[in-house]
Each structure stands twice: as structure tokens, then as C-alpha cells.
Design a protein around this nucleic acid. Structure first.
Length: 488
RNA sequence: GGCGGCAUGGCCAAGUGGCUAAGGCAUAGGACUGCAAAUCCUUGAUCCCCGGUUCGAAUCCGGGUGCCGCCUCCA
């Protein structure tokens, strides 16, 4: 089964054929580190992390490159506001990035190149563009001449003559064409600057990705990803720069773009007051919920964020967690051996469901990473596993055949296996409990007291304990396999 | 002005020509439970409107309505 990818370059799903068999080389545009990452940054992180995980699951060796833009106007402005060195400010937020991304289950890329560490490569590429006749110098600035690059517009499907340059921003009349963009900008006093053949300055907005992708992956690498809004001009310009410099195209073979996040049906922006950092969201919601939510919609569709939907997804996710706990409890409480009661038929049904879940999951992910459908396969498995648990409960106290244990273990393992591809269920088990074991010990005590009350049919006491614990955020469940408790 | 996307049950969301339109949340009924919780079973869709193509359309074509994005830094 092959993987299909919706390629922005041709606006259609295409079979993915890697440049080198068994390997995937991908580049994803990373954040400009002038602030904590926001919700909008989080989506591509989670989406492309999941793409990467699935490729690895499917047996590919993935080289994943994600840059940090640590030289940029926004950084310079922010740094001067805070009276900080721009690079130190960028470094600070790179550290913060790792905290937030890590919390969301986003694995570090194979390589995280920074602009500040690639000035030689960037300058070399600009020089190459000039040498090939696609760049020109004006005062201390260098511009890319879009009119000379025949393929300009092929990614975004625009034609130069259709675009209303200057409609919203004044055109710099030193440019040969209004759409020309800066490759190199002269430094103003006090700004960070590097020596170049064109004087002291810094790179333009787009050149970094071309240069760094080219350095680490080379021309014709497999997948380039990023947010939908980057198609134009950022990615269009990346293509133009790389291909104008190196000559041999294509720059990247498959272009993937994630849809936008809105908040309360509006585009997230500071002026609308609906701008959220990942950290603000994580103060209210478990990161796994945020991740699950982002994957509950196809990556190319827009995704609206609000508390109601988060709450909804929280409940959905807990269903999956409950299932995992149910399976674990059965494995721990039921005795297995030579068949007194075999339940062979039911076990076979579950094993069949395990196989089907993986098959469905793969089919969904193969089809342009349809995580929404993939998640559905987990719910299908959950239903079967829980139904099996019900059958087991009906045979409480009896020794069950080993095939029952096998079926339970298979379903549990399949959950973790498929969940890991989506970055879910990874820290299940010890979450919410303290390391000293004090809480566990106290809970054992409380539960024991309550059980004694229940044994005496003292429901008033038993219910009071349960209600009071509920007020503190602890849920007590009396299951056929014994008493269970959990937080929240 | 140019380019592009979306409209599926109360809500979220798959599905892009063909068996009974996935899955989740919520609702209602039932089972289980001392009562709950968890779980299982059952429960609900004129697929935005009009017209067309077809044996057959949510799915293709035309028109309409509504919403959104990009064309400027933006994930």
C-alpha cells in the first residue's frame, strides 16, 4: 500500500514516491522565535510531527529538518523593546519552544538549523542568484528579480500580472518589479549585521529556508511543509531562490500545507483579542487533549478552537483512556490458565478487531494522513475491547483460557502502537500520581474504609466518601474488577 | 480586481458516483450497579438551494445563497 499526499504544487493527491527508496527527507518551516509559540504554530508542529511518525511507522527512515528563524525584524523590534540582544532573545524563546513543543508530544527534529548559524550558506546562495542573473543590488540591498524567473507562481497558481502589488503596501520604487523581494537588507545602526559582499546587513525573509533546506537535504528533496499562508509568498520565493541559484529543479517534490486555526470562528490575531499562546491553553487543558483535538480534523481543513470543542474532545479522549484502563484492570484481576471457560469465540472476535483496526488505521493514514479517520479506527477497537470486557465480567470468578489473555494483550498493545503514531497515550499509567506513593497509600486507606462501609450496607457513609472525594477531583468507580480511582 | 477553500443529524467530523452516509460529543430508552461511574445495546440526517449529466450523485457540471482564506509580516 502506498502513501498518497495532496501536493500543493499540482493541487491533487499523488502517490508518494521517495527520492531514495525507504527514506523520506522533509523540511518544515519553523517558528520565528520572538515570543512563546501560539496555537497557530502548534498545528503544523503537531501535523508534521504526526506525518513523520507515520512515515517511520511505515518503515521509512526520516530526516526531518525544522528551522528556527532567529534573525528577523520582529525579533529586532521585540529585543529593542525589552532592551535585550536580539540573538539572546531568540535563544531564550528557542528554549521555551522546546518546552511547549515537547509538552505537545512533538519530537525534536533530526536537525534544527538556525539562521544565525548559516550566514555563509545564505550569502553563497544570494551570490549564486546574482551570478545567474536573477538578483540585483540596489544601494546595500539585494533583490530577487521575479520577472526573470519563468516558474514564478507555479506553487501558488498565480500569475505576476494578476497580482495587485502595492494594493496595501507602498511599493519601493527602487525595485525593478513591484513583486521583487529582498534577499539581503542593509543594516541600520544598532541592528545585528553580518559582513557580506554587499556590505553589512542581514538576510531577507525567505532566503534562509532555501539555503538551509538545500544544505541539509539537497535539491529535489521529498516533502516541504508549512502553514497554508506560507504558500505565497514565502514558499513561492523559496522555490524561486533555490532553483534560480542551483539551476536544477525542483527544489522540493511534494508540498504540504496545513489549514488555519480560527478561534471562535475568527482568524486568530492580537487585534481581535483571540490570540492564545500554547502555554495559556496548556494551563487549562492537558496537552494530549490539544493534540487529539488537532488530529481530529484533517490537516488541510480549517480548525476552530474554542472551549466547548476542547471539552468535547476531552470527553472523547477519556473514552479511549477508559478503555485502556479497563483492559489493564481485566489483565490484573482475572486469572488465566487452562480453559475452564474458554470464551474462545469472543476472543477471536477481539483479535479480528485488532487486525481490522490496524488495517483501517493504515488505510486512513495512507490516504493523505487522514487522522480523523484513523482516530475512528481506535474507537472501533475500543468498542470491541469493551464489549469483550463485558463478556469477561459476566464470567467473573472463573479461570479463563490463555487466549482471552492474548486477546486482551493484543488489543492493549495495538492501542499503544497506533496511539504512538498519533502521539497519544504516551505518558499513560503514572500520570497524576505522586512519586512518593503517599497519595496511593492514602487512597488505599480511604477506599478500604469505604469498602467496609459498603460491606455493612452503610450507603450513607460510602456515598459521602465518594462525594467528598469528587469535590476534591477524585473519581471513585466500583467496577466488577474492584474499586478504581482517578483524578479529574 | 486576481487566486483558492468550505457548506454533511443538536454540536464536532469522515466520506468525492452505487450495498443500510464512518467515528466522536450531546440527547432519549434499556442492560449492568445498593446508587453511581465506567461499559455495552438501542435511538436520530430531504448531505445549503435550484437546474443538469447519469441506470444511479452528498459525491460530477451550471447557476444561486452564505461563510472563510491568500494576494502585506503571519503557521
Amino acid at each position: 500500500m502506498s502513501i498518497k499526499i495532496y501536493n500543493t504544487l499540482n493541487n491533487q493527491k499523488e502517490e508518494f514516491v521517495p527520492r531514495s527508496p525507504g527514506k523520506v527527507d522533509m523540511y518544515v518551516c519553523g517558528p520565528t522565535t520572538y515570543n512563546l509559540i501560539h496555537l497557530g504554530n502548534a498545528r503544523p508542529l503537531i501535523v508534521f510531527d504526526t506525518v513523520r511518525r507515520y512515515f517511520e511507522y511505515a518503515g521509512y527512515k526520516v530526516t526531518y529538518v525544522q528551522n528556527f528563524t532567529d534573525i528577523d525584524d520582529k525579533i529586532i523590534n521585540r529585543a529593542s523593546e525589552e532592551n535585550m540582544d536580539p540573538l539572546a532573545l531568540a535563544e531564550k524563546y528557542i528554549k521555551e519552544y522546546y518546552k511547549d513543543a515537547g509538552a505537545l508530544g512533538v519530537r525534536p527534529a533530526t536537525i534544527h538549523p538556525k539562521v544565525s548559524e548559516h550566514l555563509p550558506e545564505i550569502i553563497e546562495m544570494i551570490q549564486g542568484i546574482i551570478d545567474n542573473g536573477y538578483g540585483y543590488k540596489v544601494d546595500g540591498d539585494v533583490y530577487f528579480a521575479v520577472g526573470k524567473f519563468g516558474g514564478y507562481g507555479k506553487l501558488s497558481g498565480r500569475r505576476l500580472e494578476d497580482m495587485q502589488a502595492g494594493a496595501r503596501v507602498d511599493v519601493d520604487d527602487r525595485k525593478e518589479h513591484p513583486m521583487d523581494f529582498a534577499l539581503w537588507k542593509t543594516a541600520k545602526p544598532g541592528e545585528p549585521a553580518w559582513d557580506s559582499p554587499w556590505g553589512k546587513g542581514r538576510p531577507g525573509w525567505h532566503i534562509e529556508c532555501s539555503a538551509m533546506a538545500n544544505k541539509y537535504l539537497g535539491m529535489g528533496f521529498d516533502i516541504h511543509g508549512g502553514g497554508y499562508d506560507l504558500i505565497f509568498p514565502h514558499h513561492e520565493n523559496e522555490i524561486a531562490q533555490a532553483e534560480a541559484c542551483i539551476g536544477s529543479g525542483p527544489f522540493a517534490r511534494y508540498w504540504m500545507h496545513n489549514g488555519f486555526i480560527t478561534v471562535n470562528e475568527e482568524k486568530m490575531s492580537k487585534s481581535l483579542g483571540n490570540f492564545f499562546t500554547v502555554r495559556e491553553i496548556l494551563a487549562k487543558y492537558d496537552p494530549e487533549i490539544v493534540r487529539f483535538y488537532m488530529l481530529s480534523t484533517h490537516y488541510r481543513s480549517p480548525l476552530d478552537f474554542d472551549d466547548t470543542k476542547l471539552e468535547m474532545n476531552k470527553k472523547s479522549l477519556s473514552r479511549l483512556h477508559n478503555t485502556l484502563e479497563n483492559i489493564e484492570a481485566l489483565l490484573n484481576s482475572v486469572s488465566f490458565g487452562e480453559a475452564e471457560v474458554s470464551l474462545g469465540q469472543a476472543a477471536a472476535v477481539l483479535k479480528g478487531a485488532v487486525a481490522k483496526a490496524e488495517k483501517d488505521f493504515r488505510a486512513a493514514m495512507d490516504d493523505d494522513f487522514n487522522t480523523s479517520l484513523a482516530v475512528a479506527s481506535l474507537f472501533d477497537l475500543a468498542r470491541e475491547a469493551n464489549a469483550f470486557g463485558k463478556v469477561i465480567s459476566e464470567n467473573a470468578g472463573k479461570a479463563l483460557h490463555m487466549s482471552v489473555k492474548e486477546a486482551l494483550e493484543q488489543s492493549r498493545d495495538k492501542f499503544s502502537e497506533l496511539g504512538e503514531v498519533l502521539g497519544l497515550f504516551e505518558d499513560s499509567g503514572a500520570s497524576g500520581k505522586d512519586e512518593s506513593g503517599l497519595v496511593d497509600a492514602l487512597m488505599d486507606l480511604i477506599i478500604q474504609i469505604r469498602q467496609e462501609a459498603r460491606a455493612k450496607k452503610d450507603w450513607t457513609t460510602a456515598d459521602a466518601i465518594r462525594n467528598k472525594l469528587g469535590e476534591v477531583g477524585i473519581i471513585i468507580e466500583d467496577t466488577p474488577q474492584g474499586v478504581r480511582w482517578k483524578q479529574k
